[in-house]
Design a protein around this nucleic acid. Structure first.
Lengths: 228, 228
DNA sequence: CGGAATCTCAAACGGTTGTTTTATACAGCC
DNA sequence: GGCTGTATAAAACAACCGTTTGAGATTCCG
């Protein structure tokens, strides 16, 4: 399981083990004894290297942010080409990050937990990891629908794109029970990337046309809606 | 806080209090002492009426399922009219359930937790509450795109619709930090219902056209994708 | 070498938690 | 009244967890 972490110094072994356990069990269910055992360290190691369990938790998130910046730098989500191509690139990179097969992906699981029950860590995650990507996506959407990126329409559309991607992660266990055999497929990631791109692009095209043709006016956006 | 639950028998007061606390803190972080205190019951009451803490947890979910069937019966998600109207009704009912203002909405929060860290309860939830709705949605989607409801395309599209709705619940705390002032608005629910309906309908229309015009063949669906 | 700094270890300490126990109060019924 | 089954009360129990302690290794450097 712990591939070649056995050679790492104790402090880093603790971070790796803590990440796994916190992701699996959550902050409270995770025990210092379990973490130390998996790291092959003594029970007192956590309080020696990190002040206490809570500081270790914060250090794990700092660890995760460094990993994110190293392996998924923000410029990967930007791309050349027309807006549809940029959207496709964004969705692909976003899903690649979500289903990072490189390491046991406890990173995303940690963030998922923070979303359901936020501790103080969520603030930093939003600022450093989520907001930059969200603004890129908004600018891509803006390019397609022909509105400024700060427009409500663009932000709602961006949320629709992200919501689709995250769905396969947050509700993985539900999907597994609903549609048997999806995520076991080799082409699972390709399949959902292609679908989300397709679905979103068609939606944005249609919304742009509605806005351009005046079928939905700016005032209507705030109340009744031109949709059935 | 506890509106008029004070008059209820102890066993039901415990169920209400337990629902609140489990939703707020999660199974492990919730303490029997806290639950009994909120229910105005003695510490031993949980072990008297329910065997132990775990059985109480299961009883809370059974309680929730009854509430669901009483207040949001499955036929509310079905509707007459053409497919777009049926889609709009489905999305509205689904979001109404998600943001049920009737009672402190710890029901959905409980399910959210189960999705991130499933216990044995998730199975029953999927079977009794989620799958029936999912199949209704698949049939609506099928009607629009012109494929059988069991087709991968329909299931993926249904997931896209549900993913958008759930996004505003799972990532509420993230959205609050990203886009200030959204969910505080009175029209928040109406706004997202209208947007999700609009976004999804345009997407489904576009997908139907692509499929009908042969721009995307059935074989292409399984590999390269007709999307940029 | 020798001492200081760094790290590891086993054991123990408080505190909290779920659960059990024992006793008491109160209803319904013969 | 006396008995029985049900419900509530306070106290204690046993297990577990985070943290601390103090002593022993190990490393580094003069």
């Amino acid at each position: 399981m712990a591939s070649e972490t056995s050679q790492l110094p104790t402090k880093e072994r603790l971070l790796e083990a803590a990440g796994e356990v916190f992701a699996e069990k959550g902050f409270r269910d995770a025990t210092v004894r379990d973490i130390c055992a998996r790291a092959g360290a003594n029970l007192a190691a956590v309080n020696y290297y990190f002040r206490d369990k809570e500081s270790l938790y914060a250090a794990v998130f700092e660890h995760t942010r460094r990993y994110e910046q190293e392996h998924y730098p923000i410029n990967r989500f930007e791309a050349d080409g027309d807006a549809p191509a940029r959207l496709a690139t964004f969705i692909r990179q976003f899903c690649l990050r979500l289903f990072d097969a490189g390491r046991p992906n406890w990173h995303i699981k940690l963030v998922s937990r923070e979303m359901v029950e936020p501790t103080g860590e969520l603030e930093a995650i939003v600022d450093q990891a989520i907001r930059p990507k969200f603004e890129i996506l908004c600018s891509i959407v803006a390019q397609i629908v022909g509105r400024p990126p700060t427009d409500d329409v663009c932000q709602l559309c961006a949320a629709s794109v992200i919501g689709q991607c995250l769905h396969y992660h947050h509700c993985k266990e539900v999907s597994r029970r609903l549609c048997s055999g999806w995520q076991e497929s080799d082409s699972f990631l390709d399949d959902i990337v292609r679908h989300v791109t397709w679905f979103s692009l068609k939606a944005l095209d249609g919304i742009r046309d509605d806005l351009a043709s005046g079928r939905v006016t700016a005032s209507e956006l705030k109340r009744p809606g031109g949709c059935p």
